[in-house]
């Protein structure tokens, strides 16, 4: 079943332009100049029920705007969208019962109150019966490991703790679809891991679909089945995460350590030397040009191998490469 279907979605904003300084401000007062910002330019995509879809792009790519249109907060200037069968901006309240949202940069929990109060309040807002709310809170408390945080005023929680409560709150009414806008922003590695684990568990157990925006590629790797890469309000790439890796992660990094000292000008055919140390070398090669087999045999013929590490370049680099390609194609 299709959870989200978007075709040719467009959103433009009018922003006032003003020259620098006081003179510019005065001029802008009498002759305002407007610049049209095209935040979303003809976006089309589909998302299946239960899918984990990543929406990746740099700042200002139109990710958040798209999410805000899909939740019904913003009205698009053109195009169609259907979320769980609703047109978001026309049926915002009906849709709200079915989806959960988290905007990583803004809190939805009441700042001065303990999270449990907001949870109970959300129970009322989503018209859940009290017994269900209670059971659900107990369940989410376990899934997100927030048992000892629930009774602390939210303002006293760390960002990581708060985010876990935020995501848990968004799942209280058992939504079919979770829209997460930058859920991992500002979090440290451990806190990110915590949130991802919980989201993955919830998705597996309840079949909730997750549309997640991020500018952090590691979110994708850890969570998503499929990725859509956007830039300047347009899709520049969409595929399964595994395909993305297969296609773009052909360049490998190799680090080797030998039992004896290596030559300063260490070089092997089909590989590029990045760094040479006294006993070790760091190289890179492309599997499309040089098979790993050949690389290994060449490396071992150069001396007695003590240690070897082969790794993929970080996904960030891959995505940067895709942006680069998209720019060149224009």
């Amino acid at each position: 079943m299709t959870a989200i279907s978007v075709s040719n979605l467009q959103k433009t904003f009018q922003t006032k332009r003003k020259a620098a300084g006081l003179g510019g401000s005065v001029r802008a007062l009498f002759q305002p100049e407007y610049a049209t910002v095209e935040a979303v330019r003809g976006l089309s995509f589909e998302m299946e029920q239960g899918e984990l879809l990543g929406f990746i792009g740099p700042n200002g790519a139109g990710k958040s705007t798209t999410i805000k249109i899909l939740t019904g907060i913003l009205h698009p200037n053109g195009g169609q969208a259907s979320v769980l069968g609703f047109t978001p901006w026309k049926e915002r309240q009906k849709l709200a019962f079915q989806i959960g949202t988290v905007f990583g940069q803004r809190p939805q929990l009441w700042y001065h109150l303990p999270a449990i109060d907001t949870f109970t309040l959300f129970g009322k807002i989503y018209e859940l019966d009290d017994a269900f709310t209670k059971k659900r809170i107990a369940f989410l408390t376990e899934a997100f490991e927030i048992g000892d945080l629930l009774e602390t005023p939210v303002r006293k929680l760390s960002l990581g703790q708060r985010m876990r409560c935020e995501v848990a709150a968004s799942l209280l009414h058992k939504p079919k679809l979770l829209l997460l806008d930058e859920p991992s922003i500002g979090l440290d590695v451990v806190a990110k891991q915590h949130i991802r684990d919980a989201i993955r568990t919830m998705s597996a157990e309840e079949g909730v679909g997750v549309l997640l925006t991020s500018h952090d590629a590691s979110d994708l790797e850890a969570l998503c089945h499929r990725v859509i890469i956007v830039n300047h309000g347009q899709i520049v790439y969409q595929d399964k995460v595994s395909n993305l890796k297969r296609k773009f992660l052909t360049r490998k990094l190799v680090e080797v350590r030998y039992a004896e000292e290596v030559a300063k000008n260490f070089a092997l055919e089909g590989m590029e030397t990045l760094k040479t140390g006294r006993y070790g070398v760091k190289l890179t090669f492309d599997t499309r040009q040089t098979p790993a087999d050949a690389v290994l045999s060449r490396l071992s013929s150069a001396g007695t191998l003590v240690d070897i590490t082969i790794s993929d370049p970080p996904l960030e680099e891959v995505i940067a490469m895709i942006y680069e390609q998209a720019r060149e194609e224009k």
Binding site: K68, T71, G72, I73, R92, Q93, K94, A96, F97, I99, T101, F103, Q105, R106, P107, Q108, I125, Y126, E127
Partner: peptide, 11 residues
């Protein structure tokens, strides 16, 4: 921008 939350709840 925090109005996003008051607008996407069912009330």
């Amino acid at each position: 921008g925090s109005i996003a939350y008051t607008l996407n709840k069912p009330y």
